[in-house]
């Protein structure tokens, strides 16, 4: 018990995440409305994608603006597997993790020498090129996209991810999200995580201590794009209609913004950011969408702008900075004498 208390004190975020998970599991039991459930489904989907994005965008600092398209490729793979091969989306997830991860990594390999915004520009280019190809590709329904049949009572199955209730989809998505979170959390504290973060801070330093930047950029891209495409497969089975619209640049931004709002270089930031922004935007969309279409996006954009201007490291990043400052202030006071001597010395 004592141990648990101490752990909680040192890792308040872990406690928050557990509480959120319990709430997330229980919520559909009390609020079993289709409307609420659809918001929850979207939230876990965006949170999962945002988490996947943060491996590349947050940890190693390569801002991708093509993750919408990469998730959409996963969605296409899932739909094709169900429609043409009658194969389980679970298998599609495994396949798309490897296929999308490897393809995108291969495509991006020559681009890793590019710095900052230049790299982002290439990810936009890849996203747009994929959208163009999928818009003209008859096999996947070209511009019209593809539809999965409505689920009838006898077709319900976990193996095929076909449910009539949104709650079931939500729980599947929640499990994926938890798995994603644990993966990202593990990477964050692992040897791999140290390499990624060192490269983000300074590539020259990374090289000087024996880290080969290109190798880790490839690894991060593979994991990040693979994971986002897995989430895409889930999305396809839930929404049951996909089209090249999913590959629009604005969809990529939908995954980036929660991470920015929550805190780009924190593990929990993307999840918390999604929890704030997705339900809000979905609610506004249904409340104002018919009267003032687009007004939800106005609010969305305003929140983003305010956060970027006043809390540039995100809400969680800011909170961590404050904690750090407090702790350092205490230690500084302790070392006060010694510190002064050295300054005067």
């Amino acid at each position: 018990m004592e141990k648990l208390k101490r752990y909680a004190k040192n890792n308040p975020m872990a406690v928050v995440m557990v509480v959120l998970l319990v709430l997330g599991v229980l919520l559909p039991l009390f609020l079993n409305k289709a409307y609420v459930l659809s918001i929850l489904c979207m939230t876990v989907y965006v949170a999962g994608c945002s988490l996947a994005w943060s491996i590349l965008g947050g940890m190693i600092g390569q801002i991708s603006l093509g993750h919408g398209a990469f998730a959409a490729i996963g969605a296409y793979i899932g739909t094709v597997f169900i429609t043409y091969f009658n194969t389980s989306p679970w298998i599609a997830m495994a396949v798309s993790f490897v296929v999308v991860g490897a393809t995108i990594t291969l495509l991006m390999t020559p681009c890793f020498g590019l710095k900052g915004a230049y790299f982002s520009l290439t990810t936009i280019a890849f996203g747009e090129a994929f959208r163009n190809i999928f818009t003209n590709w008859e096999y996947v329904g070209a511009g019209q996209g593809m539809m999965l049949p409505l689920v009838r009572a006898k077709d319900e199955s976990l193996w095929m991810l076909a449910f009539r209730s949104k709650a079931s989809y939500y729980y599947v998505g929640l499990v994926l999200l938890v798995v994603f979170y644990l993966i990202v959390k593990w990477i964050d504290g692992s040897k791999l995580g140290y390499a990624l973060k060192t490269i983000r801070e300074d590539e020259g330093t990374a090289e000087a201590i024996g880290i080969k930047p290109i190798k880790y950029k490839l690894i991060a891209t593979f994991i990040s794009t693979g994971m986002v495409s897995v989430m895409g497969v889930f999305y396809a089975t839930y929404i049951r209609y996909i089209s090249p619209e999913l590959m629009l640049q604005s969809k990529s931004l939908e995954f980036v913004l929660p991470a920015v709002i929550g805190g780009i270089s924190t593990v929990e930031g993307p999840v918390l950011g999604s929890l704030i922004i997705v339900p809000l935007s979905q609610y506004l969309n249904s409340a104002l969408g018919s009267k003032l279409p687009g007004s939800n996006l106005v609010v969305y954009a305003l929140i983003l702008i305010v956060v970027v201007l006043f809390r540039p490291s995100g809400l969680l990043g800011w909170w961590q900075e404050q904690r750090q400052k407090k702790r350092i202030a205490a230690e500084k006071a302790e070392l006060g004498e010694e510190g002064k001597e050295q300054v005067n010395g």
């Binding site: 915004a117 920015v260 996006l297």
Partner: peptide, 15 residues
């Protein structure tokens, strides 16, 4: 990058 992207969304959604 994030700020100007946000402004972009703001402009198009306002219109």
């Amino acid at each position: 990058l994030f700020l100007t992207a946000g402004l972009g969304i703001l402009f198009s959604s306002s219109m």
